[in-house]
Nucleic acid binder design. Sequence first.
DNA 1: GAATTGTTGTGAAACAAATCACAAAATACG
DNA 2: CGTATTTTGTGATTTGTTTCACAACAATTC
Lengths: 227, 227
Amino acid sequence: MKQITKYVIKNSLKRIFLYRACLVRLKLMGVEKVFSYTLANETGVTSEQVRKDFSEFSIKGNKRGGYEINDLLGKMEDIFHRNKDHNIVLIGMGNMGLALSKYSKFVQRNMNIVATFDIDPFKQKERSGIPVYSMSRLKEIIERFKVKVAILAVPEISAQEVADELMRHGIKGIVNFAPVLLKVPPDVVINNVNLCDELESVIYYVHKQLKIDGFKNLELLYRDMKY
Amino acid sequence: MKQITKYVIKNSLKRIFLYRACLVRLKLMGVEKVFSYTLANETGVTSEQVRKDFSEFSIKGNKRGGYEINDLLGKMEDIFHRNKDHNIVLIGMGNMGLALSKYSKFVQRNMNIVATFDIDPFKQKERSGIPVYSMSRLKEIIERFKVKVAILAVPEISAQEVADELMRHGIKGIVNFAPVLLKVPPDVVINNVNLCDELESVIYYVHKQLKIDGFKNLELLYRDMKY
DNA sequence: GAATTGTTGTGAAACAAATCACAAAATACG
DNA sequence: CGTATTTTGTGATTTGTTTCACAACAATTC
Ligand SMILES: NC(=O)c1ccc[n+]([C@@H]2O[C@H](COP(=O)([O-])OP(=O)(O)OC[C@H]3O[C@@H](n4cnc5c(N)ncnc54)[C@H](O)[C@@H]3O)[C@@H](O)[C@H]2O)c1
Ligand SMILES: NC(=O)c1ccc[n+]([C@@H]2O[C@H](COP(=O)([O-])OP(=O)(O)OC[C@H]3O[C@@H](n4cnc5c(N)ncnc54)[C@H](O)[C@@H]3O)[C@@H](O)[C@H]2O)c1
């Protein structure tokens, strides 16, 4: 049965991403050990939060000694299955698809866009090193590269239809840039990225602050801000 | 004092966005009234949640009669300050910036990218109808158009420096695509969009599901999914 | 090697969000 | 007009998350 299953990324997981980015930076700077409050300062959370998050993912440090950055990063690689490569397909080579296909950070994190697809024959040529195929080759490529995750950058109107096809071929996770809620069975993970909403919510909070500043009522403001 | 102030968009606000998108669709289909459970079904939440959210934003319906779609949309326009236009600047006309500058949905929602900026002289010409200026004209444009919100699509390394400049000229909200935590005073709203993390977390949840499926342990799975 | 210091790890407490349960209101129907 | 039905709105309850407080422990000092 297909239904709407919005996927909400847990805050603790989001924070783990922050810690990792921070650890990578510290490591580059030659640092070898961190304390929970170091990470806390760098990422804008509290040190208890850091330790609680680590405990959720069963990461242990040494009392008084803090955490070994290498150990931590190793643990996190395990958590995120980063020890192996992940093959991704990207559907829709329009403005957004093209930008994403050129984004080097994906590869740096072992996420390889192995192929991209578009319905438009004019777009079906190699672009920035990654092949652009016609939709008819979707099944073949997904199977060949054992792809489980797709990026969907097609127009709103086609998104559900394309998602259905992806799932027929075994895709289990979709990052969806189209501003629609896809209907999928509960075992498929959908992560909706809605950039209009992201921009609009900043406008919302900026306006709220401007208004509140006028009233000198800071309490309300901080209730909606999290560190 | 500059510090890290991550901005977390409230879940209730995110849901209001969902409701609105749904209402717009229903209106196009000629529907005039909705019940909380209609919206709930369409957006994958519960009907109590819909009503609680509405009550948070002091939206009232009529008992038995449900809600008038036009009323609701009007209320929401107020909430999001959509009755007036919002001028936005975009810094960094690389891959991502170019895609964003061409995105028509921003304009449809009264968010106008009035100008874009890039440090690279080769990029400083008109592109897809929007002017691309050199950074030296930032102050002038921000003041002329009373811009309060910016989109930041410059490389990681320059992000903080550019953010500082934006804030010097009065910018109060930033949608930041660079994978760094910007240090800003607490009255500035930062919304970090980290697409690597978004993709990686889908991989994370997909893997978790695959593993859990093997164990036929669904309980754990659903604890991390929210509707 | 005992006392001191600094840091982790985690139960308990406080806080926040979602769900439940139902009274109140509006409408429909006999 | 009164009874049944439907849906809202919201207190009460449950569930989830963050912060607090401190015991446990490792390292350091004397
Ligand atoms: N451009 C942006 O900055 C931006 C920002 C946020 C969200 N989005 C969303 O991302 C999606 C893509 O946006 P865009 O600006 O790249 O649009 P676009 O029109 O430039 O690109 C869409 C691409 O999808 C292809 N396509 C259409 N139907 C298809 C199908 N059935 N199968 C395969 N390919 C198909 C088209 O040929 C085109 O190349 C849209 O849903 C849009 O709302 C875009
Ligand atoms: N391309 C993507 O799909 C993608 C996805 C997610 C995040 N991002 C992030 O978005 C940002 C931009 O990515 P991109 O792929 O467009 O990179 P890019 O290199 O294509 O574009 C960056 C642009 O910023 C300009 N620039 C550099 N320094 C500047 C400065 N000090 N002031 C003004 N302009 C400056 C450059 O001239 C260039 O045009 C990066 O931080 C990247 O990590 C990109």
